[in-house]
Amino acid sequence: MTAVPAILGRRSTGERVRGGAFYGLLVFSITVGFVLLGTLLIDVFRKGIPFLDTVLLTEPPSATPEKAGARPAILGTIYMMGLLLLMAVPVGVGTALYLEEYADRDRWYNRLLEINIQNLAAVPSIVYGILGLAFLVRGLGLGRVLLAGAMILTLLVLPIVIVSSREAIRAVPDSISQGAYALGATQWQVISRQVLPAAIPGIATGSILALARAIGETAPLLLVGALTYVAIDPTILGQFTALPIQIFQWIARPQGDFKLLAAAGIIVLLAILLVMNAGAIWLRNRYQRRW
Protein backbone atom coordinates (compact mmCIF):
# COMPACT_ATOMS: atom_id res chain seq x y z
CA MET A 1 0.00 0.00 0.00
CA THR A 2 2.79 2.42 0.75
CA ALA A 3 4.05 2.00 -2.81
CA VAL A 4 1.09 3.82 -4.33
CA PRO A 5 1.67 7.29 -2.85
CA ALA A 6 5.35 6.79 -3.57
CA ILE A 7 4.63 6.40 -7.27
CA LEU A 8 2.08 9.22 -7.53
CA GLY A 9 3.93 11.52 -5.22
CA ARG A 10 2.35 13.99 -2.83
CA ARG A 11 0.98 17.22 -4.12
CA SER A 12 3.15 20.15 -3.20
CA THR A 13 1.98 22.41 -0.39
CA GLY A 14 1.49 25.30 -2.82
CA GLU A 15 -0.77 23.19 -4.97
CA ARG A 16 -2.88 22.13 -2.01
CA VAL A 17 -3.19 25.68 -0.76
CA ARG A 18 -4.31 26.82 -4.19
CA GLY A 19 -6.82 23.97 -4.40
CA GLY A 20 -8.18 24.88 -0.96
CA ALA A 21 -8.39 28.56 -1.81
CA PHE A 22 -10.23 27.80 -5.04
CA TYR A 23 -12.70 25.59 -3.19
CA GLY A 24 -13.26 28.38 -0.67
CA LEU A 25 -13.89 30.84 -3.50
CA LEU A 26 -16.48 28.54 -5.08
CA VAL A 27 -18.32 28.01 -1.81
CA PHE A 28 -18.29 31.76 -1.21
CA SER A 29 -19.71 32.40 -4.68
CA ILE A 30 -22.61 30.05 -4.31
CA THR A 31 -23.32 31.43 -0.83
CA VAL A 32 -23.66 35.05 -2.01
CA GLY A 33 -26.98 34.37 -3.71
CA PHE A 34 -28.42 32.68 -0.64
CA VAL A 35 -27.17 35.39 1.71
CA LEU A 36 -28.85 38.06 -0.41
CA LEU A 37 -32.06 36.03 -0.63
CA GLY A 38 -32.07 35.56 3.13
CA THR A 39 -31.34 39.23 3.81
CA LEU A 40 -34.06 40.27 1.39
CA LEU A 41 -36.68 38.08 3.07
CA ILE A 42 -35.70 39.16 6.58
CA ASP A 43 -35.70 42.83 5.54
CA VAL A 44 -39.09 42.61 3.84
CA PHE A 45 -40.66 40.80 6.80
CA ARG A 46 -39.13 43.15 9.34
CA LYS A 47 -40.58 46.15 7.52
CA GLY A 48 -43.85 44.66 6.41
CA ILE A 49 -45.15 42.71 9.41
CA PRO A 50 -46.65 45.78 11.21
CA PHE A 51 -48.78 46.55 8.17
CA LEU A 52 -49.74 42.98 7.39
CA ASP A 53 -53.32 42.95 8.65
CA THR A 54 -56.89 42.60 7.48
CA VAL A 55 -56.95 46.26 6.40
CA LEU A 56 -54.33 45.40 3.78
CA LEU A 57 -56.40 42.56 2.40
CA THR A 58 -59.89 44.06 2.52
CA GLU A 59 -59.58 47.85 2.10
CA PRO A 60 -59.06 49.94 -1.04
CA PRO A 61 -55.96 52.18 -1.30
CA SER A 62 -55.99 55.39 0.67
CA ALA A 63 -53.88 58.49 1.19
CA THR A 64 -53.20 57.54 4.80
CA PRO A 65 -50.97 54.47 5.09
CA GLU A 66 -52.80 53.09 8.14
CA LYS A 67 -56.09 52.91 6.25
CA ALA A 68 -54.67 51.86 2.88
CA GLY A 69 -55.30 48.36 1.60
CA ALA A 70 -54.64 46.39 -1.55
CA ARG A 71 -58.06 44.86 -2.10
CA PRO A 72 -58.51 46.03 -5.74
CA ALA A 73 -54.92 45.03 -6.51
CA ILE A 74 -55.26 41.57 -5.01
CA LEU A 75 -58.55 41.03 -6.83
CA GLY A 76 -56.95 42.33 -10.04
CA THR A 77 -54.16 39.80 -9.70
CA ILE A 78 -56.63 36.98 -9.04
CA TYR A 79 -58.78 37.94 -12.07
CA MET A 80 -55.63 38.14 -14.13
CA MET A 81 -54.65 34.62 -13.08
CA GLY A 82 -58.05 33.35 -14.15
CA LEU A 83 -57.85 35.01 -17.56
CA LEU A 84 -54.29 33.78 -18.05
CA LEU A 85 -55.39 30.26 -17.26
CA LEU A 86 -58.13 30.58 -19.89
CA MET A 87 -55.89 32.09 -22.57
CA ALA A 88 -52.25 31.12 -22.09
CA VAL A 89 -52.74 27.45 -21.24
CA PRO A 90 -54.96 26.37 -24.18
CA VAL A 91 -52.96 28.32 -26.76
CA GLY A 92 -49.65 27.15 -25.28
CA VAL A 93 -50.67 23.50 -25.11
CA GLY A 94 -52.15 23.76 -28.62
CA THR A 95 -48.87 25.10 -29.99
CA ALA A 96 -46.92 22.41 -28.15
CA LEU A 97 -49.18 19.69 -29.58
CA TYR A 98 -48.81 21.12 -33.07
CA LEU A 99 -45.01 21.20 -32.80
CA GLU A 100 -44.64 17.78 -31.19
CA GLU A 101 -47.32 15.77 -32.96
CA TYR A 102 -48.09 17.41 -36.30
CA ALA A 103 -45.26 19.65 -37.47
CA ASP A 104 -42.83 18.25 -40.02
CA ARG A 105 -39.48 19.48 -38.75
CA ASP A 106 -37.96 19.50 -42.20
CA ARG A 107 -40.27 22.27 -43.31
CA TRP A 108 -38.74 25.71 -43.12
CA TYR A 109 -41.80 27.29 -41.57
CA ASN A 110 -41.84 24.86 -38.69
CA ARG A 111 -38.16 25.46 -37.96
CA LEU A 112 -38.81 29.18 -38.15
CA LEU A 113 -41.65 28.73 -35.67
CA GLU A 114 -39.30 27.08 -33.18
CA ILE A 115 -36.62 29.74 -33.53
CA ASN A 116 -39.31 32.37 -33.21
CA ILE A 117 -40.53 30.92 -29.90
CA GLN A 118 -36.97 30.70 -28.55
CA ASN A 119 -36.42 34.35 -29.38
CA LEU A 120 -39.74 35.49 -27.95
CA ALA A 121 -38.77 33.90 -24.64
CA ALA A 122 -35.86 36.33 -24.40
CA VAL A 123 -37.58 39.54 -25.51
CA PRO A 124 -37.53 42.08 -22.62
CA SER A 125 -40.89 42.23 -20.88
CA ILE A 126 -41.18 46.00 -21.36
CA VAL A 127 -41.26 45.41 -25.12
CA TYR A 128 -44.43 43.37 -24.61
CA GLY A 129 -45.75 46.40 -22.79
CA ILE A 130 -45.07 48.51 -25.88
CA LEU A 131 -46.92 45.95 -27.98
CA GLY A 132 -49.88 46.20 -25.63
CA LEU A 133 -49.80 49.98 -25.63
CA ALA A 134 -49.68 50.21 -29.42
CA PHE A 135 -52.15 47.49 -30.38
CA LEU A 136 -54.48 46.73 -27.52
CA VAL A 137 -54.83 49.99 -25.63
CA ARG A 138 -54.62 52.49 -28.48
CA GLY A 139 -54.81 50.50 -31.75
CA LEU A 140 -57.81 48.31 -30.92
CA GLY A 141 -59.16 50.98 -28.64
CA LEU A 142 -59.59 48.47 -25.85
CA GLY A 143 -58.40 51.10 -23.40
CA ARG A 144 -56.48 50.57 -20.20
CA VAL A 145 -58.46 47.56 -19.05
CA LEU A 146 -57.80 44.33 -17.22
CA LEU A 147 -58.37 42.23 -20.34
CA ALA A 148 -55.60 44.10 -22.20
CA GLY A 149 -53.21 43.47 -19.31
CA ALA A 150 -54.11 39.79 -19.22
CA MET A 151 -53.65 39.45 -22.98
CA ILE A 152 -50.17 40.97 -22.83
CA LEU A 153 -49.14 38.73 -19.95
CA THR A 154 -50.52 35.79 -21.94
CA LEU A 155 -48.22 36.57 -24.85
CA LEU A 156 -45.35 37.12 -22.43
CA VAL A 157 -45.56 33.69 -20.77
CA LEU A 158 -46.71 31.77 -23.83
CA PRO A 159 -43.16 30.62 -24.69
CA ILE A 160 -42.74 29.22 -21.16
CA VAL A 161 -46.03 27.29 -21.37
CA ILE A 162 -45.09 26.00 -24.83
CA VAL A 163 -41.62 24.80 -23.83
CA SER A 164 -42.77 23.04 -20.65
CA SER A 165 -45.77 21.48 -22.40
CA ARG A 166 -43.56 20.19 -25.19
CA GLU A 167 -41.29 18.55 -22.65
CA ALA A 168 -44.25 16.92 -20.94
CA ILE A 169 -45.66 15.67 -24.26
CA ARG A 170 -42.28 14.39 -25.40
CA ALA A 171 -41.87 12.44 -22.17
CA VAL A 172 -44.89 10.27 -22.99
CA PRO A 173 -43.37 7.10 -24.45
CA ASP A 174 -43.95 6.36 -28.09
CA SER A 175 -45.09 2.84 -27.31
CA ILE A 176 -48.33 4.23 -25.85
CA SER A 177 -49.30 6.10 -28.99
CA GLN A 178 -48.07 3.27 -31.22
CA GLY A 179 -50.29 0.89 -29.30
CA ALA A 180 -53.29 3.15 -29.79
CA TYR A 181 -52.56 3.54 -33.50
CA ALA A 182 -52.31 -0.23 -33.82
CA LEU A 183 -55.84 -0.50 -32.44
CA GLY A 184 -57.05 1.77 -35.21
CA ALA A 185 -57.28 5.08 -33.40
CA THR A 186 -57.04 8.26 -35.43
CA GLN A 187 -54.30 10.77 -34.67
CA TRP A 188 -56.55 13.05 -32.63
CA GLN A 189 -57.98 10.09 -30.73
CA VAL A 190 -54.44 9.03 -29.85
CA ILE A 191 -53.52 12.54 -28.73
CA SER A 192 -56.67 13.42 -26.84
CA ARG A 193 -57.16 10.09 -25.10
CA GLN A 194 -53.62 8.80 -24.59
CA VAL A 195 -50.91 11.41 -24.98
CA LEU A 196 -52.61 14.41 -23.35
CA PRO A 197 -53.91 12.63 -20.25
CA ALA A 198 -50.46 11.16 -19.67
CA ALA A 199 -48.84 14.58 -20.11
CA ILE A 200 -51.26 16.56 -17.95
CA PRO A 201 -49.22 16.55 -14.71
CA GLY A 202 -46.19 17.93 -16.54
CA ILE A 203 -48.29 20.49 -18.40
CA ALA A 204 -50.00 21.60 -15.19
CA THR A 205 -46.70 21.99 -13.37
CA GLY A 206 -45.22 24.08 -16.17
CA SER A 207 -48.37 26.18 -16.50
CA ILE A 208 -48.48 27.02 -12.79
CA LEU A 209 -44.84 28.12 -12.91
CA ALA A 210 -45.56 30.26 -15.98
CA LEU A 211 -48.56 31.80 -14.20
CA ALA A 212 -46.38 32.55 -11.19
CA ARG A 213 -43.95 34.32 -13.47
CA ALA A 214 -46.77 36.34 -15.01
CA ILE A 215 -48.36 37.64 -11.83
CA GLY A 216 -45.03 38.92 -10.54
CA GLU A 217 -44.51 40.87 -13.76
CA THR A 218 -44.78 44.64 -13.42
CA ALA A 219 -43.18 46.47 -16.34
CA PRO A 220 -45.56 45.53 -19.18
CA LEU A 221 -48.58 46.35 -17.03
CA LEU A 222 -47.21 49.83 -16.38
CA LEU A 223 -47.43 50.55 -20.11
CA VAL A 224 -50.86 48.99 -20.47
CA GLY A 225 -51.91 51.48 -17.85
CA ALA A 226 -52.45 49.68 -14.61
CA LEU A 227 -51.02 52.59 -12.67
CA THR A 228 -54.24 54.53 -12.45
CA TYR A 229 -55.71 55.07 -9.03
CA VAL A 230 -58.32 52.35 -8.63
CA ALA A 231 -60.37 52.23 -5.47
CA ILE A 232 -63.20 50.05 -6.71
CA ASP A 233 -63.14 46.33 -7.38
CA PRO A 234 -61.82 45.61 -10.86
CA THR A 235 -63.87 44.28 -13.75
CA ILE A 236 -62.57 42.58 -16.86
CA LEU A 237 -63.37 45.50 -19.15
CA GLY A 238 -62.71 48.20 -16.58
CA GLN A 239 -59.73 50.01 -15.18
CA PHE A 240 -57.56 47.83 -13.03
CA THR A 241 -54.51 47.50 -10.92
CA ALA A 242 -52.51 44.47 -9.83
CA LEU A 243 -50.50 43.57 -6.76
CA PRO A 244 -47.00 44.27 -8.17
CA ILE A 245 -48.25 47.58 -9.57
CA GLN A 246 -49.73 48.56 -6.21
CA ILE A 247 -46.40 47.68 -4.57
CA PHE A 248 -44.55 49.84 -7.08
CA GLN A 249 -46.94 52.71 -6.45
CA TRP A 250 -46.34 52.51 -2.72
CA ILE A 251 -42.56 52.33 -3.18
CA ALA A 252 -42.71 55.48 -5.32
CA ARG A 253 -44.49 57.48 -2.59
CA PRO A 254 -42.18 59.80 -0.67
CA GLN A 255 -43.69 59.12 2.79
CA GLY A 256 -41.75 56.47 4.67
CA ASP A 257 -44.77 54.55 5.93
CA PHE A 258 -45.81 53.71 2.38
CA LYS A 259 -42.52 51.88 1.94
CA LEU A 260 -43.48 49.68 4.90
CA LEU A 261 -46.87 49.17 3.32
CA ALA A 262 -45.07 48.14 0.13
CA ALA A 263 -43.15 45.57 2.17
CA ALA A 264 -46.44 44.20 3.49
CA GLY A 265 -47.72 44.00 -0.10
CA ILE A 266 -44.55 42.16 -1.07
CA ILE A 267 -45.18 39.60 1.67
CA VAL A 268 -48.66 38.95 0.23
CA LEU A 269 -47.23 38.65 -3.30
CA LEU A 270 -44.45 36.30 -2.19
CA ALA A 271 -46.99 34.23 -0.25
CA ILE A 272 -49.12 33.81 -3.39
CA LEU A 273 -46.02 32.83 -5.40
CA LEU A 274 -44.92 30.41 -2.68
CA VAL A 275 -48.31 28.68 -2.69
CA MET A 276 -48.23 28.40 -6.50
CA ASN A 277 -44.69 27.04 -6.59
CA ALA A 278 -45.37 24.62 -3.77
CA GLY A 279 -48.47 23.49 -5.65
CA ALA A 280 -46.42 22.91 -8.79
CA ILE A 281 -43.82 20.88 -6.90
CA TRP A 282 -46.51 18.86 -5.13
CA LEU A 283 -48.21 18.14 -8.47
CA ARG A 284 -44.96 17.02 -10.00
CA ASN A 285 -44.05 14.71 -7.16
CA ARG A 286 -47.56 13.33 -6.80
CA TYR A 287 -48.52 12.65 -10.38
CA GLN A 288 -45.50 12.73 -12.63
CA ARG A 289 -44.62 9.26 -13.74
CA ARG A 290 -41.33 8.08 -15.10
CA TRP A 291 -41.59 5.62 -17.92
Partner: peptide, 15 residues
Amino acid sequence: LAGIPTVVFGFFALT
Protein backbone atom coordinates in the same frame (compact mmCIF):
# COMPACT_ATOMS: atom_id res chain seq x y z
CA LEU B 1 -33.65 33.85 -6.74
CA ALA B 2 -34.78 33.92 -10.35
CA GLY B 3 -38.41 33.49 -9.29
CA ILE B 4 -38.60 36.59 -7.08
CA PRO B 5 -40.49 39.40 -8.88
CA THR B 6 -38.17 42.18 -9.99
CA VAL B 7 -40.28 44.82 -8.25
CA VAL B 8 -39.20 43.13 -5.00
CA PHE B 9 -35.52 43.37 -5.95
CA GLY B 10 -36.09 47.03 -6.79
CA PHE B 11 -37.57 47.62 -3.34
CA PHE B 12 -34.64 45.82 -1.75
CA ALA B 13 -32.07 47.81 -3.73
CA LEU B 14 -33.69 51.13 -2.86
CA THR B 15 -34.61 50.61 0.79
